[in-house]
Every structure is written in structure tokens, then in C-alpha cells.
Write a protein that binds this DNA or RNA. Structure first.
Lengths: 347, 347
DNA sequence: TTGAAAGCGTTACCAA
DNA sequence: TTGGTAACGCTTTCAA
């Protein structure tokens, strides 16, 4: 009868077990593992080999406990039914991974954030947090500031205790107005999303201001939820207007609503852009599909995320850095949901 | 000259600082904070108050170091351009939050998973991991098994060292075949997504088997990337076929491709469903939009995620539990992208 | 009902 | 170039 085989170490290798195997101290192991130049190359290699064989996996939780960073970036995201947020998430995940950081999703949805959620941000000691949706409560933001957890708003205007990166909403609103005016539209309407979204203000203000310069006023101003359904409802309402009162162009403040609106007005029998021009904002991938062909103001999402992570990284390295806002210029992508400028007139 | 005000504790309250404030030991604080019945109610309340005032935030990293769980669930997700994965993510985030767990996103994209990514799973000591996309390398899976990290495949068939929850792909394929046959289609085609996706096999096999029972064979079998563009390319190819060789129905194995295919065949001038019936799989939200009106086999995504988290929770509690596969029945959602069964014939 | 102390895995400072 | 040791914040066992 043979002795039973030794039970393999269930809990994996640690710097401790490696130090015993290598016959060196834990500090040497720790240093060797992070390629500290002070460790003799031979020792370093030996430990690296041992670590590989043993299937050593550093415990980042322990590492961050010991003064370091967690490598965790929090993300407070908007509703994933909106492809803009889906894309934002994808960008953030991939770009963070390139920097050796991981995304902890704190929220992905509409509506206010539960207290439990905003606290998780602190519980998990994220190194920083990207906020792309419904405002974090000011209390949560204040706690983050107090604790030195940098916050960066993405596609949201700056707030107290947070940096921000967003599209130049004023320029965007103005560009859309200019484009619509050049197209000869005389009865422009505006469709806004969920109230209280900070980016809407700039877009609306600049849009209206530019119209005013041309002596025009808004023919209609509607509010809806920032969803496909919200846009659909707005479109149905517009299509139901008597022809004389109907706007000849609509600026919809985000693409997901613009798509809903487009479907609704077409269902109602209106032709786009002959009867109604539609312009969106965001340039989500689906906007390019033939069944939408949406003219829209593209946000430079990849760059926004990159700059957001940059701001975060800088503040993680030096928490004393002041809040900073960066504004990126978007670009009008012309497709066929809006009447094109008359060459004769524009010429 | 006044003494400078004391610098506030920069690093937040800890069980230690609270114990000093309350004049009790750290163990008492620790216990009081988790409502241990052994602590006198008065003490408990006093400590709770102190904790609130001090803005105490437990450090879950430290907690999990000390033998507990991290509360972190890993997610290896597919490309977010596919609304199916966006929805899956949203479900997972919200349902995990209800269970007091947070999602660590390890991957969100197409293509193989980098080693760094799959290792992060171990580095962060996730309690378990949901895998919804491209296979984790077998090596990673083996390590997880060895380390006792439960894995649950979602919308993927079971693999070694992992539980799984998926839609009944066989039943789904059969249901679609039955529906198409009842609609009088005689030249059915199949469009598959990215090769090697484990769920495709069952759908295809059952679809073909049911056709065979009716004496029919596949008129065409195409492969593409599981993207809108992949579907679009397939649609273009089908529309380019001479009318005599063209299939009269296509079963597209996922909705994102079905939408691309739908747009492509319509662009090419075909009428759906008069010239071609299209049936998808998944039932993503956009499938219901008027411009698609896609008949598709709906996956019970909410339930799939729920059962997935259940499987995980059970294995976190008892790592000795054997792997388990759960199969959920999907449901055909009939819209107007496919010719309806002839009532007389279906009689 | 409460306290003391060990331990979780790492890092970093101070010696050697 | 390497080792010892004290944190980091929390939980838990064992005593009292």
C-alpha cells in the first residue's frame, strides 16, 4: 500500500512559496518578479522560471492593499440599448486593457444611480472612474474628491470635483444649424432627449442662436426619452401635425432617437428628406445603414475615451492636478436624411 | 499665531481608526459593522454611527484578501457592436448588482483573447466568470479549474471545466425549419456566422434534419463574419444569384447578420418576404423595428443570465459541485420578414 | 460581550 | 545583491 500522493497546494503559488522553492527571501522574489535591476540576472531568471512552472499568479488585491494601485477603473455608463454607450464601453475596455487597466462596471442603464452602486466605487478602491451617464450624486462625487479618486465625465459637461472630456456641443449645434439653413429649411424643429442631460444645453443654445442669426425661430421643440421609442413617439407626433404646421427639418439631439423618429415619420407616410429633413448627433454605427442613412454630427468617441483615460492616468499619478476639461470638435457626416444645400445658393 | 489645523486623515476611516474612536477593539468594530449578533446592540449602534460620520468605506480588497470572496464576477464578452452582447452585458451588470456582485470586464470584442486578458481573471481573484464569447484558451480554463474559479459559458455549449447555459439550439433550428416549411418554402438557405462558434452546430444540424424529413436539402450555405457587414455581404451575394438559383428563404444564425442581409437584399431590389423570406436568431431589440420586422427565434436572455449567475453562485459556495449544463427553450417571434404559413395548408 | 493576535499576499524601507 | 520586517485593512480563531 502506497502512501497517498501529497495534496497539491490548492491555493496556488505565492511569493512566499516561491521564496521557499528558490531558497531566497520574499523580497527577492517580489523584486525579481517585477524585473528589478538590482536582482542578479541569474536569480531573476531562476525565479521567473519557478514562477512559470508553479503557475504563479500575482494577487493584485494584495498588491493594491500594500500601497499600490488597484488597476481598476470604474465605469458609470448609460443604457446599453443605446449603441453610443455600447461603443463607449467597448472603447473603454479595449483602451484600458492596453494600459494594463481593467474596467469595473458600476452602472449600465438609465435612471439614477443607487447609493450601493456609487459606494462600490469606493469599496473596490478603483484608481479612477469614468462617468458617462446620469450624474453621480454630488455626495458621491464629493466623497471621491475627498478620497482622492479622480473622476472624469465623458460626454458630459464638467462638474464640481471632476474633469471632463466632451464634444464641442456648441460648435456641433451651430454646424447643424448652418447645414440646415444652407439646405433652405425654413421651419426647423428640435427634439431633445431626457431632461437634465448636460450636453443638450450647448447643442440647443448654439443651434437656436445660429437660426436666430438667419432670422429664424424654432418651429417646434419636443422632449422625449433618449431611446428609440422616445424618438419614435416624437416622430409620430410630428407626422400627425397638419402639413402647414409641420417643421421641414428636425435636429434630434442623439442618434438613437433620430432613428426612432425616422422610422416613425416614414411609417406615417412622410418622405425623408423630401417632406422632412432629419439630423442626428453621435454617429453610431447603425446611422450609416441604408435604412437610416442618417446625417449626423459625429462625436470622436475613440479620442474622447483616450483623452478621458489620459486625464485619469495623470491624476492617478498626481492627485494634486487641477480639474481639466477638454473639448473635442465633432464632424458633420452628411448622408441622405437631410436635404442637401442648394449648390446655387451655397455657391 | 495659531497651531496649524490637523491634517485630516487623507486615507479615509478604517476599522482601526474607528476602533480608536469608539474605544473598542478592531474585532469589535469588524463584527459590529456586519451586524454580528454577539455585539451589544448599543455598541453596534454607536459604531455604526461613528462609521457613518467618518464616511467609513470598507475596503473589499482587504476583505477578500482575508479569506473572503472578492464579489467580482469576470465577464468575457463578445463584440459590443452586436446588440445581443450589449444586452447580455446590461443584464449581467444589473443582475449581478442585485446580488451584491460587480462585473469585471475582461474582454469585449471579437477575436481571440490575449493571454494578458485571461490572466487578469486570476490576478483579480474573481469569484467566478461568465464567458459569452470566443473561447477562453483551454489553458486558461484549466487554470481556472485548478484554482477553483467556476466558469459558466453563456450562449456557448459546454466545454471541459465549465458549466453552461444556452438556448436549445436544436429545438430552435427545428422550429425555424418547421415554420419555413409551413410557409411553403422549397429552396431554403443557411447563413452561418464566424466559424467555430459552438452554438451554430446545433442550430444547423436540426434545421437541416427537419428539412430532410420534408425531402428538402439546403439550396445554399454561406459563411460570414457575425457582424452587420458580414450579413450584408451574404445578402449581396444571394441577391446576385440568377432568379432560378436563388433561395426562397434564408435562415441567418444571428440577428445582427440577418439585419445586414435584409438591408442588402432590399438594396438589390428584392422584396422581403415576397422574393425572399428571412429568419434570424436572438431577437435583439432592433429586430422589432419596422425597418426590419425580423421574424426570429428569441433567446430568453434575461433567464439565461439569471441561471448563469445561479450556477456561478452555487459553485462559489461549493466548489465541489459538478459542472452543469442548462438548456432553455427559445421562442419563435413571428414578424413579417418571412412568408407566413398558408392557413389552408397548415390547416 | 469583547479583546489580542495571527494571517491573507504584496510591497518597500532599512540593514547587511 | 539580498534579507528581515513592518505595513496595507480586514476577518477570524482563541481566550478572557
Amino acid at each position: 500500500m502506497t502512501a497517498p500522493p501529497p495534496i497539491p497546494a490548492r491555493r496556488g503559488a505565492t511569493v512566499h512559496s516561491l521564496s521557499r522553492l528558490a531558497g531566497v527571501s520574499v523580497s527577492t522574489v517580489s523584486r525579481a518578479l517585477k524585473d528589478d535591476p538590482r536582482i542578479a540576472p541569474a536569480t531573476r531568471r531562476r525565479i521567473a522560471d519557478l514562477a512559470r512552472e508553479a503557475g504563479y499568479m500575482p494577487n493584485v488585491l494584495a498588491r493594491s492593499l500594500s500601497g499600490g494601485q488597484s488597476g481598476l477603473i470604474g465605469l458609470v455608463n448609460g443604457p446599453m440599448q443605446n449603441p453610443f454607450y455600447a461603443e463607449l464601453l467597448a472603447e473603454a475596455v479595449n483602451q484600458a486593457a492596453e494600459r494594463g487597466q481593467r474596467l469595473l462596471i458600476l452602472h449600465a442603464g438609465t435612471g439614477p444611480i443607487e447609493d450601493r452602486t456609487s459606494e462600490a466605487l469606493l469599496h473596490y478602491r478603483v484608481d479612477g472612474c469614468l462617468v458617462a451617464s446620469a450624474e453621480l450624486s454630488s455626495r458621491a462625487a464629493a466623497i471621491c474628491a475627498e478620497r482622492g479618486v479622480p473622476l472624469v465625465m465623458v460626454n458630459r459637461v464638467a462638474r464640481l470635483h471632476a474633469s471632463a472630456v466632451s464634444c464641442d456641443n456648441e460648435a456641433g449645434g451651430r454646424d447643424v444649424a448652418k447645414f440646415l439653413l444652407a439646405g433652405g429649411h425654413r421651419r426647423p424643429a428640435l427634439v431633445l432627449g431626457t431632461v437634465g442631460v448636460s450636453t443638450s444645453d450647448g447643442r440647443e443654445r448654439a443651434f437656436i442662436a445660429r437660426l436666430a442669426e438667419a432670422g429664424l425661430r424654432l418651429a417646434l421643440r419636443l422632449h422625449g426619452h433618449s431611446t428609440y421609442e422616445g424618438g419614435h413617439a416624437a416622430g409620430t407626433a410630428i407626422a400627425a401635425l397638419p402639413a402647414g404646421e409641420r417643421p421641414d427639418a428636425v435636429f434630434v439631439l442623439n442618434d438613437i432617437m433620430a432613428m426612432g423618429l425616422l422610422d416613425a415619420v416614414r411609417e406615417a407616410g412622410l418622405r425623408v428628406p423630401e417632406d422632412l429633413s432629419v439630423v442626428g448627433f453621435d454617429d453610431v454605427p447603425a446611422a450609416a445603414r441604408r435604412c437610416y442613412g442618417l446625417t449626423t454630427l459625429a462625436q470622436p468617441l475613440g479620442t474622447m475615451v483616450r483623452r478621458g483615460l489620459d486625464l485619469l492616468a495623470a491624476r492617478i499619478a498626481d492627485p494634486a492636478l487641477p480639474d481639466e476639461s477638454v473639448t473635442l470638435r465633432g464632424q458633420l457626416v452628411v448622408r441622405h436624411s437631410a436635404r442637401l444645400p442648394d449648390p446655387a445658393r451655397a455657391g
